[in-house]
């Protein structure tokens, strides 16, 4: 691993978030929360209804993951990122409610990007399909909300040097746009169209 990888402690502060730029490689240590399709939809509905949330979003990173069951002796099973775009409809409200960003893979919507910049917050990518490797950097888990969703519940995870890359920063920088420009723009249009 190269020397320019930055070690960050969670939860992230405003200053740390603003110092991050698209393409930065980081190692994350500390706690975050998880959620994917159904958990994000539940949280979004509770916010829309003005009800109390079962989990505090303030300054938390949200990791889009539905881990595999933990084998004996491990804190968690394979636990890589799922496709972020499916959570687009929920993210502006969840960011406004206090999140400092999320970890996932793939494109995010324009509305989500603008919400990241307003907050400010950051979108990290982890390498999709490397759940076995990423699980080695997760040292403990605890269910925080929606246990009935099993693997899709909201967990608190404790990370030790979890590798990630900044995909969209709080200043509008976007790794995908930079690496393949017009192809990325077409892709995002396509993803939006598919939803």
């Amino acid at each position: 691993m190269s020397a320019e990888v930055r070690r960050l402690t969670l939860p992230l502060t405003d200053a740390t978030v603003q110092a991050l730029h698209a393409g930065d490689e980081v190692l994350l240590t500390g706690t975050l929360i998880t959620g994917r399709d159904r958990a994000c939809a539940h949280l979004h509905r509770l916010l829309a209804d003005g009800e109390a949330l079962p989990v505090d979003l303030a300054d938390q990173l949200l990791y889009f993951v539905g881990p595999a069951p933990a084998p004996p002796g491990m804190a968690i099973g394979s636990a890589g990122p799922t496709t972020s775009a499916r959570m687009n409809p929920f993210m502006p409200a969840l960011l406004e409610a206090g999140l400092r960003g999320m970890i996932g893979k793939g494109f995010i919507g324009e509305e989500v990007k603008r919400a990241l910049e307003r907050r400010p917050a950051v979108y990290f990518g982890a390498v999709g399909g490397t759940g076995a490797l990423l699980a080695q950097t997760i040292t403990s888990t605890e269910v925080l909300a929606f246990p009935e969703l099993r693997g899709e519940a909201v967990f608190r995870l404790e990370l030790a040097a979890f590798p990630a890359v900044v995909l969209h920063d709080s200043h509008g920088g976007d790794l995908y746009e930079r690496t393949y420009g017009s192809v990325a723009a077409a892709g995002q249009a396509g993803v939006a169209h598919n939803e």
Partner: peptide, 24 residues
């Protein structure tokens, strides 16, 4: 580095009898 990680992941999965990806 990303390709290295993918290969390293495959090694870890095989050694620890874990699925390579949580989406099985």
């Amino acid at each position: 580095r990303t390709l290295d990680r993918i290969l390293e992941n495959a090694d870890v999965a095989e050694r620890a009898s874990l699925p390579m990806c949580q989406d099985t």
